[in-house]
């Protein structure tokens, strides 16, 4: 953990402009905290589209194959039962279970992947300790610049001054904060 620079803004339009300026200055590890989703920000900050759908698709295919295999094996191989002369293994009836399993596997995989991917079963983040952070879920828009960090405090001062000058016209309040893992 180390020091980060925070720019606080008061409107969605301004946070998009500010993010553009920050990116133009060459900072890459920039995060935004906003009360509601702002689609334009994703493009500016270079947020990639999630690869979750592909994972869910593969999991769905896996579930479907497994269901087909299990039904074929139980009905046609392990315990064949003659019901009114019907074929022991038949695709039309298998489709129901195949479909349900595909949905189940895809859904569980997607759910688990979201949890793991967003490191969710976690109760605290050092960010929460920063004064005023709770307002990012109400009416404030934060840009968090992580890669202004350096061991040399002088570089950080310089970066803060530069950002301050750059973002002042947008009414940004630029501050520095130290993130500590220790928490309370």
């Amino acid at each position: 953990m180390g020091e980060v620079i925070i720019a606080e803004l008061d409107s969605p339009e301004r946070v998009v402009q500010a993010a553009r300026s920050v990116r133009a200055l060459g900072y890459a590890r920039v995060e935004a905290f906003t009360p509601f989703p702002i689609p334009e920000l994703e493009d500016v900050l270079g947020v990639r589209r999630t690869r979750l759908p592909r994972l869910a698709f593969v999991a769905g295919l896996g579930g479907a194959s497994l269901a087909l295999l299990v039904q074929w094996w139980t009905n046609a191989v392990d315990y064949p039962l003659d019901v009114g002369g019907r074929p022991t293994s038949s695709l039309p009836t298998d489709v129901l279970i195949v479909f349900e399993s595909a949905v189940l596997f895809a859904a569980i995989t997607a759910f688990a992947a979201v949890l793991v991917g967003s490191r969710l079963p976690r109760l605290h983040d050092p960010l929460f300790d920063l004064p005023g952070f709770e307002r990012t879920s109400l009416d404030r828009f934060w840009l968090l610049i992580r890669d202004a960090y350096d061991d040399d405090a002088g570089i950080l001062d310089e970066a803060q001054a530069l950002l301050d000058a750059e973002l002042a016209r947008l009414g940004a309040v630029v501050t520095r904060a130290r993130l500590t893992e220790a928490g309370a």
């Binding site: 009114g84 039309p92 009836t93």
Partner: peptide, 12 residues
């Protein structure tokens, strides 16, 4: 379409 087929196929 599938369910129309399935119900008719299974009742036979």
């Amino acid at each position: 379409a599938f369910f129309q087929l399935l119900l008719i196929w299974i009742a036979n």
